[in-house]
Amino acid sequence: MTNEIDDFVGKRLRRRRRLLGLTQQSLGEMVGIRFQQIQKYECGANRVSAARLFELAEALGVPVQYFYDGLSDRDMFSDDPFPEFLAPDVLSKKETMDLVRAYYSMGPEPRKHFLDLAKSLEASDGKAPLRLVAP
């Protein structure tokens, strides 16, 4: 039987896989299992063994602890690090992952300009005053 922690680990697995632009098939091949097993891990239907979690961490380029980051005694099952700013599922959407990948594929100067643009667009939605010129 699985529990909320298995679900949390599965969500972290899905988030990292999507961030890297991997399919379930390609990740499965990297660790020697079928994509259906990756699906079951990601939805929390199957528990990931310690050995498999280590293999997945190696394949995804993260420490094993990555899968548990965000668990706490106070709010053990929330995987949203910014609940007051983001919708709960925004970090698991393909669109978000595409945007993050594109952002980090830019050089430092274009990234700065892109971030400035995004902030100015956010400000134009009425939440904060729009500043068109630098102070």
Rank of each mutant, 00 (worst) to 15 (best):
C43F: 00
A128D: 01
A128V: 01
R14C: 09
L56Y: 08
Q37D: 04
D116T: 11
R17K: 04
P135V: 08
R47D: 03
K93S: 15
E29R: 07
F35G: 02
L56K: 04
S49N: 05
R101W: 08
R15H: 08
N46F: 09
M76V: 13
D116S: 13
D75S: 13
L91P: 05
R17E: 02
R14V: 04
F114N: 11
K112Y: 12
Q36M: 08
R16L: 09
L130T: 00
M76S: 15
L99Y: 15
D6I: 02
L91C: 11
N3R: 10
D7Q: 14
M1P: 02
A87S: 15
G107M: 05
S78Y: 09
F114I: 14
P110L: 04
G61V: 08
L86V: 14
L86K: 13
G61E: 09
A87Y: 13
R101Y: 07
M30D: 04
K112Q: 14
L20K: 03
G32V: 06
S105D: 14
K94A: 14
T23L: 03
L132Y: 00
N46K: 10
S26R: 01
R47K: 11
G10D: 02
Q24I: 00
R101I: 08
F85E: 12
K11F: 10
G61R: 07
L27C: 01
E58G: 10
V100T: 15
V100Y: 14
R18A: 08
D73Q: 12
R111D: 06
T96S: 12
D116Q: 15
L56I: 07
M76H: 13
A118Y: 09
L56F: 09
Q24C: 00
E55G: 04
G107A: 10
P63C: 05
P63N: 09
G70H: 05
K93R: 15
E122I: 11
Y103F: 15
S72D: 03
A102D: 15
V64M: 14
R17D: 00
D75W: 10
Y104H: 15
S72G: 06
G10I: 03
V100L: 15
K112D: 14
R101M: 07
G126N: 03
D79Y: 12
P63K: 07
D7F: 11
T96G: 06
G21M: 07
F114M: 15
L27D: 01
R74G: 11
M1C: 06
L115H: 10
L130S: 00
M106Y: 04
K119R: 13
P63H: 06
S78H: 10
A128N: 04
P83F: 10
C43Q: 08
V48T: 07
Y68C: 10
Y68L: 15
F54R: 14
P63I: 05
L117Y: 13
L56C: 08
I38G: 01
P135Q: 06
Q24H: 01
L19T: 05
E58F: 13
L130W: 02
S26V: 02
Y68V: 10
R47V: 03
L99K: 14
S124K: 00
P129T: 01
Y66E: 06
G44A: 09
R14H: 11
D7G: 13
V62K: 05
D75Q: 14
V64Y: 11
E58P: 06
P63W: 06
R15Y: 04
H113P: 04
R18L: 12
A45I: 11
P81N: 12
Y104R: 15
R101E: 04
E122K: 14
R15I: 09
G32W: 03
F82M: 14
L22A: 01
F54K: 15
G126L: 00
